[in-house]
Amino acid sequence: MASTSHLNTLFIGHHRLHFESLDSTNNYLKELIGKKDVQEGLVVTADYQTSGRGQIGNTWASEPGVNLLMSVFFKPHYLNASHSFYFNMSVCLAVADTLNFFHAGFQVKWPNDILFDGKKVCGILIENSLMGKNIQHSVVGIGVNVNQNIFDKNTNKATSLRQILGHEVEMRYFTNKVLEMLEKRYHQLQRDRYGLLQDYFAFLYGYKQTVAAFINGKKVMATIIDVLADGHLKAEINGKTELFQFKEISFEL
């Protein structure tokens, strides 16, 4: 069981499981949920993932032992599936809050990445299970480049908190800060979704700004004007407003 010292939360992270290596923290947590009753707020971390996954099947590569590889279990029963992206917003904002605590300038890239100066620092994978029209439970996978200093030469669009700050960050302190921000934003999700949405827009890359994007391999200039509760992105392209699902539009960094 990993240490929870200096953790200031009501329930998130009070129970943790840590492993040197897993295929995926999300996979492990989902398998655990299938075998036993799991308490909300359980955290699974690993030093290394052999099959880390990103949004819609993308892979997440990480150097062993230097980054945050974590999954957290939530039960947002009150949230209708058609409003599920509010939960995504709360998670993205929590990670952005944490990173901006250390250094200003981090942004959210729709749907689930965190950027600094156009380079990816964090990827988030949220897997929801439904009961009727509502979310039964959620497994939230978070991968943050914390202390990695060397990246594959083909990964020129990635950076780490260490590279930005110029020094290493104590991992337990960073992890606890993420968990505290997750709980703070989770409570906001329950009581103030309008405020959550406005905060999300304040950190959203391309919101009310014209940026380069790709649609079906074609480069266009797009301006994000809204993100809907179900996750659809509304953007203005060549004077026309269009609606996009995940993977239908990507943004050039």
Rank of each mutant, 00 (worst) to 15 (best):
G143M: 02
E40M: 11
M89N: 07
F201G: 10
N67A: 05
N156K: 15
R16E: 10
E242W: 07
E31R: 15
T155R: 13
M131N: 14
F19P: 00
N8H: 10
K247E: 11
R193L: 00
G13V: 08
E183V: 08
G57W: 06
T159F: 05
L7G: 04
S250V: 14
Y86G: 01
L253V: 09
L130K: 12
L125Q: 06
G65V: 03
N154E: 15
H167S: 10
L69C: 01
A81F: 11
H187P: 01
Y86E: 10
D97H: 10
K184E: 03
A104T: 15
G206R: 11
G34T: 01
E242P: 10
D37A: 14
S51C: 12
V44I: 11
F201D: 09
E236L: 11
V66G: 00
V72E: 05
G206W: 07
V72L: 01
K120F: 02
E40G: 11
Y78Q: 15
V144E: 00
I56A: 01
H232Y: 12
V121D: 03
G141T: 04
I224F: 05
V95A: 09
L32D: 00
D47V: 04
L197N: 00
A2I: 14
T98L: 00
S138Y: 02
R162M: 07
H6K: 15
E242C: 05
F87P: 07
A229L: 06
Q209N: 12
N145M: 00
K218T: 14
K30H: 05
S160A: 08
F19W: 07
A235L: 06
G143S: 08
A222C: 02
